[in-house]
Nucleic acid binder design. Structure first.
Lengths: 340, 340
DNA sequence: ACTGCAATCGTTATCGGTTACGTTTCCAGG
DNA sequence: CCTGGAAACGTAACCGATAACGATTGCAGT
């Protein structure tokens, strides 16, 4: 009879098969040095008891687990898309995936969360990790690939061509006739945030439009951070005719604030985002944004990590993926476009 | 100097602080019985060495880990939405989340994957688990909540009101004048698939329309499974004027096949799905579907699991959530609606 | 000074599995 | 019949942490 609440351990199997745990281990791992008869006995006992090796115990002892890890701070659309790409890359690869997500306890995870998670996992559980939008540099015994790394990071990473993307977005607005273009920046420790701001500045400068620091709001990619910033920009006596937000999540908040303050979009205000998360196509009006394939980011990161873990890597360790502008309905020429 | 590649263990800290590992453990866990001076020493050593406790080692020894698990077979939009809800419910709860996803090695995980993952995790790593769309019954030492359980399952679960949803969907088609309505079923071991088919049959019967078995295709919720079935239905001499698919993923494949075979939707063919995944709003035409809040499923499952783990549960253990019809552009009256 | 009780801290068994090493078994060759 | 060596298997150390338990110390009370 099978006892339901009893966790079946290796020694249970050993006892049932009349051998030592060492022999059971050898059978389970297909190691040499066990007679056919004993193998059959052990197999039968495993079958009968429904034994399944414990990931925890195994990983504690072994160096290699064939499990890769992914740690993320929050779990929004961005991360979900990345995950799909990761899973695709890992399918039929022999690697399983463990995702570790914290519950943001008391907000106390604010600093060093990725390091904390990483050391907890990579101690033994995983052979390597992907970190999504880290807040700082990390160190680990096992390989780590960063998606959207911090500025100045030197480790393996995958990132979109944020500079070109942002430049294109602002050029789009300039092309429509906008001259007063607000910007809501992202968490400035991230390379992506920095490049997007750089692209904003570069496009303006190239067009001969001076950069007005008072039109720049300092967000942190967290959608909520954009709300007060958008309010400040739009309640000025001379509000910008367009706002470029460094992420779609923040851009959607700008749309919210605009609606709340009576701005019609794109009539009174054009809005551009960055990321092209699924929600951006669903809003009214649809959000014009810069598409970065989060799926592709995840896919490439997983591919790179796999190679790093198996030790067969030759490509450059910092991959940059292209971006493209997606024009929807949140952008139009400004009302005063006819001004000389 | 900090050695980068050395995993810092508790005994390293103990040595540095001149105490035993037991004392370090007490300090780390804030237990009683350590003098202020020793605490300071240990804290300093921890800080200096950058020590972080190993999740694996801790969970092996401890019964309680404050980590919940989630296992899923694949990782599509459905799972991603569920995950968002789970994360929301767990935010600031003190529980972290570990998601275990297999790489579907050689397709050999087909049977019993959830049991395999569950025993590997719940041995020690997690205090309880959520299983998304299991393929069979599972047993575990720790609590398990199933999202969309198998038919006849008795354990804790969260599920949508699939019967009402499917009935409403088919009534919508009947109301438009359709009489020949095809159905593409889901994996029949799941309660949801069974209820959706039940709703299909019930609505037809209630309207006095006989159920034609040849109009029913046996899919398995996997989008790819719908393609050949849709082809068969639409290549008949007398194709149905509408198809109700038991999931959006499959419905989207029906749209693909319809386009390929020259059917215009909704002109020649009406299509209804089930789930309301984000993609369904983005297709041309937008997919009419039954909305089940996957977010809510995840949220409720996590809430239930939390209560089960902490032992403070009193509500019924099988939660049913409402569904609602979302009418978009993939449904219209049939061309021959005027027939008597 | 001696007892008694806390407070403090180290020792050790333990979790489940892996593996280096030692021991026994078995068979072939001398 | 004895020996050598490989095959088969058990023993025990170990991975990193926790907790029951025992040992030591400090201090108050008498």
């Amino acid at each position: 009879m099978i006892e339901v609440n009893a966790p079946v351990t290796m020694s249970d199997v050993a006892r049932a098969a009349g051998v030592s745990t060492a022999t059971v281990s050898r059978v389970v791992n297909g190691h040499y040095g066990v007679s056919a008869r004993t193998v059959a006995q052990v197999r039968s006992a495993i079958e009968h008891l429904g034994y399944e090796s414990s990931l925890v115990a195994t990983s504690l002892r072994r160096s290699r687990t064939n499990v890769l890890g992914l740690v993320a701070h929050s779990f929004q659309s961005y991360t979900a898309e990345v995950l799909k790409g990761v899973m695709k890359a890992l399918s039929r690869s022999g690697f399983d995936l463990i995702i570790y997500a914290n519950s943001d306890l008391y907000g106390s995870y604010s600093e060093g969360w990725e390091q904390r998670h990483l050391t907890r996992l990579s101690g033994t559980l995983t052979d390597g990790c992907i970190v999504v939008t880290p807040w700082g540099e990390v160190r680990s015994r096992t390989p780590v690939v960063a998606i959207d790394p911090v500025r100045g990071s030197t480790g393996p990473s995958v990132i979109s061509d944020n500079l070109t993307g942002a430049t294109t977005a602002v050029e789009h607005l300039l092309g429509l006739g906008h001259r007063r273009i607000g910007f809501i920046a992202g968490r400035d420790s991230l390379a992506s945030a920095w490049s997007r701001e750089e692209g904003y500045r570069a496009a303006l400068t190239a067009a001969g439009v001076p950069v007005d620091p008072t039109l720049i709001g300092r967000g942190d990619f967290n959608p909520e951070s954009a709300t007060p910033l958008a309010r400040v920009l739009l309640q000025r006596p001379d509000p910008p005719s367009a706002i470029f937000a460094a992420s779609d999540g923040m851009a959607l908040k700008v749309l919210e604030v605009a609606r709340e303050l009576g701005f019609s979009v794109p009539g009174d205000l054009s809005v551009v985002g960055f990321d092209n998360i699924p929600e951006s196509a669903l809003t009214q009006p649809g959000l014009t944004t810069v598409d970065q394939s989060m799926y592709q980011l995840g896919y490439e990161a997983a591919r790179m990590l796999k190679s790093l873990v198996t030790g067969e890597w030759d490509e450059p360790s910092q991959i940059v993926l292209p971006t493209s502008l997606v024009v929807r309905d949140s952008t139009a020429p400004p009302k005063s476009a006819a001004r000389p």
